[in-house]
Design a protein around this nucleic acid. Structure first.
Length: 568
RNA sequence: UGGGGCAUGGUGCAAUGGCAGCACACCAGCCUUUGGAGCUGUGGAUCUUGGUUCGAAUCCAGGUGCCCCAGCCA
């Protein structure tokens, strides 16, 4: 693999960081990954992770993994561990792990400073009152169907309390003297500001909730805007890289740090990764899991990291995909096909080839000696000679793919049909004589003759066949469960739609009676293979000794599907 | 004129005032013991109008379109 790009981070970030280093704003680089521990990582997070990781790496800096655990009602230790494990699986390395909650004490003292400066106050308004006094956006935006005009906000009646009173009230909020929702601490900025975030944003709210790390110590918890930038600054994070939705937060980010005269961390934004047919909304993914629409957070149909891993996607493929899509400030939707192409490319180079018959049809080779078994030599990976070869047993009765036989072949069909000769991969040329049907008219077995002179697959007389099909020996085959996946959703942008209306009812097909070659009989969960001509597969967690279960990671490109569609 | 952000083939990304290129997809062909892989080729894009310039995707001005923002979520 060649390194075609010298840099793995977007130009606009590289330039900004370079400039900061040159003009002396910073003399080192430190970035941070800021996951909220309220769910599992999905492929959308990988982009942010990689940008943070590579930016630090490229400038000889370091990366902190900092959990944004400021809302104890949603967050759990379970997710902290899962996120760490998933990020490590991806290959991301960090200098240390921290938590927003590590800074609760310091942050509180900073809030006290702000109150002393007359820049923050305790507001006793109800949530409804605050909302009503915040002003409105003009008609035409999605929230204002009933409102007709832009309105500035109105100052809270509590806005001009004395510093002493604010200090006292804040202290008592912290001590748990007040009911949830009864008071908040707000920054004192400008209730008429055109950017609504600067209309006296809430800094602390009262929550009498147990925190997964600080226990019951706190009764107030900071909001995102009163935490994230401060933590960046406290940790000496130079570049706080985040998605475009935070652009409007940047003035607030800077306001706090300037007023506090704190270390001037810099926020830079980029666009999120959107993928067609993928659900990125944590809330909706949770619903899929809770309603049993999928089998868990690691369901292979999900684009969670655990889902992708279970499906058989490698970390390298994920990284290659994400860096390959590039990073900009443009809103964009990358096609799922792009991900699949990268996965194929990755697996093509590393996956051992095996033969597996997913939908078996019995073939009897009438002129092959009864009871005889031969060991055929098969290549493990034509892309990688060092993968070597293996022996595959061959005998009189074999299974082939039902799709590889037609009693009456459509145009351009090169596979097995009465009178046609095909090659059994690594074995013999066989010619179909006739098919046997059951009472219902369904083909239940096919009879063939083989040419003993074609062992290995080449005819001494030089005659060619147009098709090579895969097979397994009936006597030696191992029975396997195979799970075939399709898109979970029927629409390209599932985050937008009504969940129940867009679920693809056929996203999972379980095949209980596939036959696989003996080499597949004892595989470890997680091992990846290419089943010749059908796709890439990965041994599932449910695999037991002698009872393999495979997930289809992705199909092979199927040009016959195209031809057959065109032909009709 | 509420504030902010973004506009390059179907999709995603390059081109940092000098021949609009790459990947995926698509189409045609070659090759093939995977109708896989590989190889070759075709078609297709600078949102719009004006300006600056020898020269504009790039700079300037106006317009248009899309996205984000009124959580005590992050």
């Amino acid at each position: 693999m060649t390194e075609e790009k010298t840099s793995r981070i977007p130009a606009f970030i590289r330039e900004a960081v370079t400039e900061d280093l040159k003009n002396g704003r910073f003399n080192y680089v430190r970035t941070r990954l800021p996951p909220e521990p309220n769910g599992y990582l999905h492929i959308g997070h990988v982009k942010a992770f990689l940008i943070d990781y590579f930016t630090a790496q490229e400038f000889g800096g370091e990366l902190y993994l900092r959990f944004d655990d400021t809302n104890p009602s949603k967050e759990e230790t379970e997710f902290v561990e899962a996120i760490e494990a998933d990020a490590a699986w991806l290959g991301i390395q960090w200098a240390k792990v921290t938590f927003a909650s590590d800074y609760f004490d310091l942050l509180y003292s900073w809030a006290v400073n702000l109150v002393r400066l007359g820049l923050a106050y305790v507001d006793d308004q109800t949530q409804e009152e605050m909302s009503a006094s915040r002003g409105t956006l003009p008609k035409g935006t999605k929230w204002s169907e009933t409102e007709s005009a832009i309105k500035p906000g109105v100052d809270s009646p509590y806005r001009n309390r004395s510093v002493e009173e604010n200090l006292d009230l804040l202290e008592r909020m912290k001590n748990g003297e007040f009911a949830e929702g009864s008071r908040v601490l707000r920054a004192k900025i400008d209730m008429a500001h055109p950017n609504i975030l600067l209309r006296d944003p809430v800094m602390y709210r009262i929550m009498h909730v147990h925190h997964h790390r600080t226990g019951d110590k706190w009764h107030i918890y900071p909001m995102y805007d009163w935490s994230h930038g401060q933590n960046d600054s406290m940790e000496g994070v130079t570049h706080s890289l985040c998605s475009n939705e935070y652009i409007i937060h940047r003035p607030l980010y800077e306001w706090f740090l300037q007023k506090l005269e704190a270390f001037p961390s810099r926020q830079i934004e980029f666009s999120r990764l959107n993928l067609t047919y993928a659900m990125m909304s944590k809330r909706k993914v949770r619903k899929l899991v809770e309603e049993g629409i999928v089998r868990g957070w690691d369901d292979p149909r999900l684009t969670t990291l655990r889902g992708l891993r279970r499906r058989g996607v490698t970390p390298e493929a994920i990284i290659h995909f994400v860096t390959g899509t590039g990073e900009t400030k443009n809103d964009s939707y990358v096609e799922m096909g792009q991900l699949e192409a990268v996965i194929r490319d990755d697996l093509n180079k590393r996956a051992l080839r095996r033969m597996a018959v997913l939908k078996p049809l019995k073939v009897i080779i009438d002129n092959y000696p009864e009871g005889q078994t031969e060991e055929m030599e098969a290549v493990n990976n034509p892309e990688d000679p060092s993968a070597g070869t293996r022996k595959v047993p061959f005998s009189k009765v074999i299974y082939i793919e039902r799709d590889d036989f037609r009693e009456t072949p459509p145009p351009k069909y090169f596979r097995l049909y009465p009178g046609n000769e095909v090659r059994l991969r690594y074995a013999y040329l066989i010619k179909c004589t006739h098919a046997v049907k059951d009472a219902a008219g369904e083909v239940i077995e096919v009879h063939c003759t083989y040419d003993p002179a074609t062992r290995g697959g080449d005819a001494p007389d030089g005659r060619k066949v147009k098709s090579t099909i895969h097979w397994v020996s009936a006597e030696h085959a191992v029975k396997a469960e195979v799970r075939l996946y399709e898109q979970l959703f029927t629409v390209e942008r599932p985050d937008d739609g009504d969940l129940d209306a867009i679920i693809n009812p056929n996203s999972l097909e379980v095949i209980g009676n596939a036959y696989v070659e003996p080499a597949l009989g004892n595989v470890e969960a997680g091992e990846r293979f290419q089943f010749e001509r059908t796709g890439y597969f990965c041994a599932d967690l449910d695999t037991k000794p002698g009872k393999p279960v495979f997930n289809r990671t992705v199909t092979l490109k199927d040009s016959w599907a195209k031809v057959s569609q065109k032909v009709g």
